[in-house]
Design a protein around this nucleic acid. Sequence first.
DNA 1: GCCGCATTGTGAAAACATTCACCTGAGGAC
DNA 2: GTCCTCAGGTGAATGTTTTCACAATGCGGC
Lengths: 216, 216
Amino acid sequence: MPRISESTVRRLSHYLRVLEEVEAEGKRMISSHRLAEREGITSAQVRKDLSYFGSFGRRGLGYNVAHLREEIRTILGLERRWRVGVVGAGNIGAALLAYRGFEKQGFDVVAVFDRDPARIGVKLDHHEVQDVASLPAVAAREGVEIGVIATPLRAAQDVADLLVAAGVRGILNFAPRKLFVPPHIALRTVDMAMEFESLSFALTQGRAPRRRRARG
Amino acid sequence: MPRISESTVRRLSHYLRVLEEVEAEGKRMISSHRLAEREGITSAQVRKDLSYFGSFGRRGLGYNVAHLREEIRTILGLERRWRVGVVGAGNIGAALLAYRGFEKQGFDVVAVFDRDPARIGVKLDHHEVQDVASLPAVAAREGVEIGVIATPLRAAQDVADLLVAAGVRGILNFAPRKLFVPPHIALRTVDMAMEFESLSFALTQGRAPRRRRARG
DNA sequence: GCCGCATTGTGAAAACATTCACCTGAGGAC
DNA sequence: GTCCTCAGGTGAATGTTTTCACAATGCGGC
């Protein structure tokens, strides 16, 4: 199996969502062409992405919706539940906690931390906010595997170090800066400022970007 | 000038942030090597990215920090201010409004909309939430150029259509689905569920992704 | 059972992005 | 002024991702 590119993984997430939609519509089968159509990419891309992991379709028929959904869930590691710790109980943290969608996909927030004494002890969407000083102990006890950094910029690297020391294996970072973590830690950064700037660039150039990104 | 890739634009945003940091530290010059170091990429990449737009450095010396910062701001279209309308006054909308960073970079929220009567009229961070029904009129009057979709999934496509009809040129979408917009509209989607799934994949594979993405 | 149509899976080609390697220009030491 | 070192710019090479195009099915109709 070749190394799987980040773009392929992102598309798998999209396929999964389309499959869930299509399934809700009661369809049993779907072709790569129609799977692609909904995503704004080519059918060859869909087939190539899936071919990295096996042969899930049937020639002449397409893919069985429920079966492919399960296969993709397995590939993405969504057949189990993940224990998530959120650091930073400000707006972004609150938005994450309020959004029920993650739980549905298998991500359970098991602890919320903040440094601000005014926030510690407050109940935020069923979770009592704990002092970040207790993170190492709590993360270990709760078996936190994924840490979310929703703190101000200046605290982000320290929190990342803390999470790594606490044994977290993956980090989702909302602070607008590169974080340095050991190579065995998976890190993803969501940088909204960068998205705004990318829009600004596109608008300034006077044209939308090429199609395969234009439908992001 | 060749077509500029999305990756290059994203790196420009990063360079800009590094330059602002370095400037705050009082440094006058910076080499492509040190600019790259902070970003976890190669110096050749930095030079190549910049070379698409011109020659900003001096051989033997590196780049003048303040000058390069200004050049990149110009390239990204940040020498002007952008008028932003936010649709959806829930958690994500509130998080965006509360974050002062965007204003600082040139993005001014000039209107906030929601459909929920319980939210309409409420003041959210200096902005009175308006009925989404008034979006066409208000967006035109206020000259909204960038629309942010922070609504629930099911409303996202309708809101996108509304924004396009109102003359918006760029859309930043937080709803976890592909939106269809005309080709002349720039669209970026921030999909947090996808980021979680990408992390799940990486952890399931038992290895972090290759380095150039690992330091995202 | 055979034909025709639909649709997958996949090597090969093309497009795209990154890295290399070297030429060139700039300043400092003496 | 000459030499040495540093570091940007850039064509070529390499690596990666996407697209093409077609052989290999699988099914329905008759």
